[in-house]
Amino acid sequence: MDIQERVIKIIAEQAVLEPSDVSLESSLDDLGIDSLGLVESIFAIEEVFEISVPFNANEPNENDFDISSVASIIGGIEKLIEEQRK
């Protein structure tokens, strides 16, 4: 499974949807993921990819980590993996 598939699997599980129902353009809001669901997803992402995601739930939209869509999350993770695995 590549990064994209694994991220979609995590998000789909959190949203109680099939991975096929999660499109790259969807926002977490569209998928019905609330603030607790978001921190749980970030925890799962950190565990699965063994990375540390810079995310402060007080200012979810002001972090370096862009969570505006599934695609931006995947992009952010790819970047973090590259940075943190050096």
Binding site: L36, V39, E40, I42, F43
Partner: peptide, 9 residues
């Protein structure tokens, strides 16, 4: 070094 986010609640 990482715990689940729901530990406190």
């Amino acid at each position: 070094n990482r715990v689940h986010p729901f530990v406190v609640p």
